[in-house]
């Protein structure tokens, strides 16, 4: 049983009328794994998750959770699953506290000390009516209910889009605790750094297709840092260093440069830079946008080559 895949999606297709939302989605989530599912807005993350949850029916391919058909056996699957949507809408007339209790009851769970702790940690005023909550507070309600649910699979669909950095940190801690206690987690996001920090495996989706899946290490090439630097001495030697790409000097003396560098080479490059007396230094991790731009370019080049 333990070796059984928690989520197994292969060749998944979904059309809405003529629009093909999902063309070819493949995902696997092993027990105890934390799978990051990233892609830009409209790529099909939520659609995939909604198929996995049995809310909408796949047009082709197969999707299984705990080895069961997500559409036919949705009720059985939902017994062992917790879900937090990206846009949480709650019944306006209930208070946050009542909603948490309701959600727990519906999943066959109980309001425990853990629930109270979560309410304290997320600093949620549970006596307020849902209609008065901001987006972030509604998300907290759903997150508290999900985190105090004891099941084996947790699905989060862009859960931190309304949270401030402090609450985002709490979220990351809680997800780590889930992982430490052997739970499986599917986390969709368009924020690369969030996924990078937490996930074992990452799947990238673009225009309804999963285009890359792998561990963080195997995707190291995706995590090049962009460096902007000014030094006192010339940086001409950078051209010959390994792991340095897209080098661009900003002046003739070659003391100001922009380039990107592989994460595993950053140590040696930094050492070299400091030898030349750094005046200014800025490094930024690549944004998801850069990543997708690269994929677009790759696609175009391929087309030219064909």
């Amino acid at each position: 049983m333990n070796s059984q895949l928690v989520v197994e999606v292969s060749g998944l297709k979904k059309s809405f009328g003529k629009f093909e939302a999902l063309k070819d989605v493949n995902l696997t989530l092993h027990p105890g794994e934390l799978l990051g599912f990233i892609g830009p807005n409209g790529a099909g993350k939520s659609t995939t998750i909604r198929v996995i949850l049995g809310l909408i029916k796949a047009t082709g391919g197969s999707a299984k959770v705990f080895g069961k058909n997500v559409w036919k056996d949705s009720v059985v699957i939902h017994k062992d699953l917790a879900y937090v949507p990206g846009d949480v809408y709650l019944w306006p007339n209930l208070t946050g506290g009542q909603t948490i209790d309701l959600l727990l009851h519906m999943s066959g769970q109980k309001h425990t000390k853990r629930t109270d702790d979560l309410i304290k940690e997320f600093k949620l005023d549970t006596s307020k009516k849902n209609r008065t909550y901001s987006k972030g507070n509604r998300q907290k309600v759903a997150l508290i209910a999900a985190f105090s649910t004891d099941v084996s699979l947790y699905i989060f669909d862009e859960p931190t889009s309304g949270l401030d950095p402090l609450n985002e940190l709490i979220f990351q801690q809680k997800v780590k605790q889930l992982k430490d206690s052997g739970k499986s987690v599917l986390l969709s996001s368009h924020i690369l750094s969030e996924v990078e920090k937490m996930c074992d495996t990452i799947s990238i989706i673009r225009e309804g297709k999963v285009i890359e899946t792998g561990s963080l290490e195997s995707m190291q090439h995706l995590t090049r840092n962009a460096v902007t630097v000014k030094t006192a001495k010339s940086l001409g030697a950078l051209q010959k260093m390994t792991g340095v790409y897209q080098l661009n000097f900003k002046n003739d003396q070659q003391t100001a440069a922009e380039f990107s560098v592989d994460s595993d080479q950053i140590g040696s490059v930094m050492a070299f830079l400091s030898q030349n007396q750094i005046l200014q230094l800025k490094t930024t991790p690549p944004t998801l946008e850069d990543l997708f731009l690269r994929y677009y370019h790759a696609d175009n080049e391929q087309k030219v080559g064909e």
């Binding site: 049995g54 009720v75 939902h78 949507p85 949480v88 809408y89 519906m106 759903a142």
Partner: peptide
């Protein structure tokens, strides 16, 4: 969406 993902048909 929060009800439909609980074990109720």
């Amino acid at each position: 969406q929060l009800v439909n993902t609980t074990p109720h048909s």
